[in-house]
Computed example of a mutant assay.
Amino acid sequence: MSAGTGWTRRVLVVAGVAGMGWWAYLALTSIPSHWWLPWGIWLAGSVALNDAVIAPLVIVLGWVVLVRLPALAQDRAQGRAVAVGQEHVWVGVVLRGLVMVLGTLLLVWLVALWSSVR
């Protein structure tokens, strides 16, 4: 582990906890209290669906892609094909996951705002 890894990890954890707190505050103040039970049921159902269906499917597909298919990229400077390391693929997977989570939270917040206006 490099010297900067501990510091970077701490900053990311603090940023993640702050983001979750902010979105929790927005959810609790933007969603009317009579909607909390239906939203809770919807969230619990989506977690169950994710854990039972989506996550295993993503794991299997990810295993097939990472293990069975060689990832190649064109080295423009040399004009030859080189293999892309698995760590680069994992960074892409993690970044895509973060974008998906933040986009979902933004969508929930916008729906809550739209619902409170009507």
Rank of each mutant, 00 (worst) to 15 (best):
Val17Asn: 13
Val14Arg: 14
Leu12Ala: 14
Gly6Val: 05
Val47Gln: 05
Gly21Gln: 11
Trp7Leu: 15
Tyr25Pro: 03
Pro38Glu: 00
Gly21Asn: 08
Gly6Cys: 03
Ile59Ser: 10
Ala55Tyr: 14
Ala24Val: 13
Arg9Phe: 15
Pro56Lys: 03
Gly16Asp: 08
Ile31Tyr: 01
His34Asn: 13
Ala27Ser: 14
Leu28Ser: 06
Ala18His: 04
Ala15Met: 05
Ser30Val: 00
Ile41Trp: 01
Arg10Glu: 15
Leu28Asp: 02
Met20Trp: 08
Ser33Lys: 11
Gly19Ser: 12
Leu12Phe: 12
Tyr25Ile: 02
Ser30Gly: 02
Trp42Cys: 04
Ile41Met: 06
Trp36Gln: 04
Pro38Ser: 01
Leu28Ala: 13
Thr5Ile: 03
Val60Pro: 00
Gly45Lys: 04
Thr8Trp: 09
Trp35Ile: 00
Gly16Ile: 10
Ser30Met: 04
Ala18Asn: 04
Leu26Gly: 00
Leu43Lys: 01
Trp7Ile: 15
Asn50Thr: 12
Met20Lys: 04
Ser33Asp: 09
Arg9Ala: 15
Val13Leu: 11
Ile41Gln: 02
Ala48Ile: 15
Leu43Phe: 13
Leu12Thr: 07
Ile59Thr: 14
Trp42Lys: 03
Ile54Asn: 02
Arg9Asn: 11
Trp35His: 08
Leu26Ala: 12
Ala48Gln: 08
Leu57Lys: 08
Gly19Asn: 10
Trp35Ala: 13
